[in-house]
Design a binder for these strands. Structure first.
Lengths: 204, 204
DNA sequence: GTCAAAACTAGAACAGGGTTCTAGTATAGT
DNA sequence: ACTATACTAGAACCCTGTTCTAGTTTTGAC
């Protein structure tokens, strides 16, 4: 049988375990500031967290799960980042563009996180699926909120498209196939296409 | 120093080398019909191709390169597939939707290829970059060709967006996060958004 | 037809890194 | 105090891509 029931979720038993778990996540995030997750070894994480390798595995059943949880933790930051300041734009297009550019900027500051997202995106682990759901809920709410002049359903559909453009842009950027400026531009462009004709229509 | 100059590109020295190289690619493609590239070992490829492991490495410097070339070979098929039959639609939206649905269908028949694309998409290898360029050139030409009523530049921009939606859809599908039908629907939807208002505008 | 150079083969050996296991020590709840 | 559980350091395991070895075939030049 298994070694014992490990503390699965964030609801660790004792405070010290809670702290230990957090220390491992923090350590991972720290290491991600200097290199990609595929250049980070589990023993590096253990060492950085001041914990034995076995302990890392007690809290996270695999490297993939560990980094998925790291992403969850970071997602909260992202949500705060893009919704902290009020949007300055006066049109839907301006506001949506602004908020998406903020997302790009957040990933631009943490390229390893962008690469992590790109990698986990192709994982079929159920935990990964749940995490993307959560990430999408956080960001989509903000994106949809930027659209004042269209009904909710249309807003959702527009956001879905724009999200795809964002994801594609980030992926080609982290793969080194396009400069980051291109990602900003493509988003601006896509939004113009999606809202431009619509605005003209409304105006007439 | 290196063992010797291996035949790099498809321009192998002798016909038998040309054939051997092709046999390795065919073997890979055959194996991809039953499992994913990450479940295929280099020795499996060698065996299936009736060739020694070292020979595979003589023709392809790494597993990643091998499968990148497999993708190149398959891309030709894809191009043929989606452009073989004439498009039946009478509007830009109908034609573009149809041709994109063909792309989805092609990947639907070869899920491993879709997963291969998703994986290589995050690779920063220059060869991968070149391959995606080539793939994009093949498909984008067809997509743009489906748009009769907009100028070339606008068509390009629309196609770029739709491409992103396709890529996102395929990725979430291969990750098992959405059913394939959803991918078709999202494309239909995105195209309607991009061309719907525009058509209305033209009509008035 | 002969011969050296290059390619091919079967298979062993190597390497990196995720994961698991071991033996001993520390902690905590009863 | 006692026992179950957690933690530690580190070894060990394992899978798989990649490289190497020794011997055999092919190939191309003369």
């Amino acid at each position: 049988m298994s070694p014992a029931a490990p503390p699965a979720g964030p609801e660790a038993r004792t405070p010290s375990q809670q702290a230990r778990r957090q220390r491992i996540l923090d350590a991972s995030l720290t290491l991600l500031r200097e290199r990609d997750h595929d250049r980070i070894q589990m023993k590096d994480v253990a060492e950085q967290a001041g914990v034995a390798l076995g302990t890392v595995y007690r809290y996270f059943s695999s490297k993939e799960h560990l980094f998925a949880e790291v992403l969850v933790a970071w997602a909260a930051t992202l949500g705060t980042n893009i919704s902290r300041h009020p949007l300055r734009g006066t049109t839907d297009a301006e506001r949506l563009t602004e908020v998406l550019h903020r997302s790009v900027r957040a990933f631009q500051r943490q390229p390893s996180l962008a690469r992590l997202v790109a990698t986990l995106e192709t994982s079929s682990d159920p935990l990964a699926a749940e995490i993307f759901d959560r990430l999408a809920r956080i960001t989509d709410a903000v994106y949809v909120g930027a659209l004042h002049d269209v009904d909710r359903d249309t807003a959702q559909r527009i956001v879905a498209v724009v999200d795809a453009v964002l994801a594609s842009g980030l992926r080609t950027w982290v793969a080194g196939r396009v400069p980051i400026g291109r990602v900003y531009d493509d988003l601006t462009d896509a939004i113009a296409l999606l809202l431009g004709a619509r605005a003209q229509l409304a105006r007439s």
